[in-house]
């Protein structure tokens, strides 16, 4: 075959020394490749379906097992008979108390950090980069490490320090307590608050900031009167995401304040408390009769899931409202 025909006859595949050339040959290869590629949608689709199925199975299992036990009494009563009967009210109360305290600690610190990063630190300064690295790494630390940190730092260092300074060495704060557990959770959820707050602040139109400065506002006045009100929805979203993350964590609180069982509700900052996630752990591993606790376990998990989903849904709703406001 002459080279001439190899160039001109572009409708027939041509073989030149074992190497296929010209467009039709390439498209022939491509179709073979395409046939291979068409497996990919099937494969990826199948794997996606697996993910969905797993979620469905988990949810179905929990709902089917738990819905029957989800009574008013279950939600409002104390555990009885070695936790094989009764309800989970102390755990619900403890969880709510815990995350409220956590929010009180996490939001001001997180918002202040976001303000510092965005409005005070120069973006490429060593300080700003250091804070950013710290925040990112904080988000990657395993939660059990937070638990140990909380025990070592808050309980044993800060708590004992307070006891020595104010209680003459008597045990008051130097033991696991709700304040230390909530502080530990606050440290854990801080990155969420910082990142969402910063994001909300970045979304504030530059025009608002300029208008404020042009009216003679100082930087702090601009932050207080323009930046914070306009990022309030973002701050709330961050707070709710932090709560939904924090409400499900067990590892950080098991050394720092959560109790196996308490006959009373926590009333003081240095009381211990019961908590839903920890209660699940207790019911499933620490109970004298695991078989008998099983129905309660399902219902407890269902309550925990519903609580977390509701908080996430609230966060999504708030974010939607935030978007609508800036679109208008």
């Amino acid at each position: 075959m002459s080279t001439d025909s190899a160039i001109t006859s572009d409708l027939s595949p041509t073989d030149v020394g074992g190497i296929t050339l010209t467009a039709p040959i390439l498209s022939g290869r491509k179709s073979r490749l395409m046939r291979k590629l068409s497996l990919l949608p099937i494969l990826t689709g199948f794997l996606t379906l697996c993910v969905v199925l797993m979620l469905v199975v988990v949810l179905w299992n929990i709902i089917a097992g738990g819905i029957g036990g989800l009574t008013w009494e279950f939600l409002t009563a104390n555990p009885t008979e070695g936790m094989t009967k009764g309800g989970i009210f102390p755990a619900i109360f403890g969880t709510v108390f815990l995350v409220i305290l956590m929010t009180i600690f996490a939001i001001p610190v997180g918002v202040a950090t976001a303000i510092f990063l965005r409005y005070y630190a120069r973006p490429d300064s060593r300080m700003a980069r250091l804070v950013r690295v710290a925040v990112n790494n904080l988000a990657g630390v395993p939660s059990i490490v937070f638990g140990l940190f909380g025990l070592g730092f808050f309980v044993q260092f800060v708590g004992r320090g307070i006891d020595k300074a104010f209680y003459g060495g008597n045990l008051a704060f130097g033991q696991p307590a709700i304040i230390w557990a909530s502080l530990t959770l606050a440290v854990l959820t801080l990155p969420v608050v910082i990142v969402t707050t910063e994001e909300a602040m970045r979304a504030i139109p530059r025009d608002y900031i300029e208008a404020s400065y042009a009216l003679g506002a100082t930087r702090w006045q601009t932050i207080w009167h323009v930046v914070i009100p306009n990022s309030m929805a973002g701050i709330l979203t961050g707070g709710i995401l932090a709560v939904s993350r924090g409400a499900g964590e067990v590892a950080p609180i098991m050394f720092t304040g959560a109790a196996y069982y308490l006959p009373y509700l926590p009333a003081k900052l240095n009381d211990q408390f019961m908590e839903l996630g920890y209660h699940v752990y207790v019911l499933s591993t620490q109970s004298p009769d695991v078989e008998k606790t099983l129905p309660l376990l399902y219902s407890t998990v269902l309550v925990l899931l519903l609580l977390t989903f509701a908080l996430n849904a609230l966060a999504v709703l708030i974010r939607m409202r935030l978007r609508m406001r800036y679109a208008g």
């Binding site: 025009d207 608002y208 208008a211 404020s212 042009a214 009216l215 003679g216 506002a217 306009n230």
Partner: peptide
């Protein structure tokens, strides 16, 4: 405050009309 400014793109704050005008006075 002595040299005021109006921008190319109108940029009222997402507040009420009254609060927009009062902003400079309040701060």
């Amino acid at each position: 405050r002595r040299v005021g400014m109006v921008f190319q793109k109108s940029n009222p704050f997402p507040k009420t009309i009254r609060e927009n005008v009062a902003f400079g006075l309040r701060i």
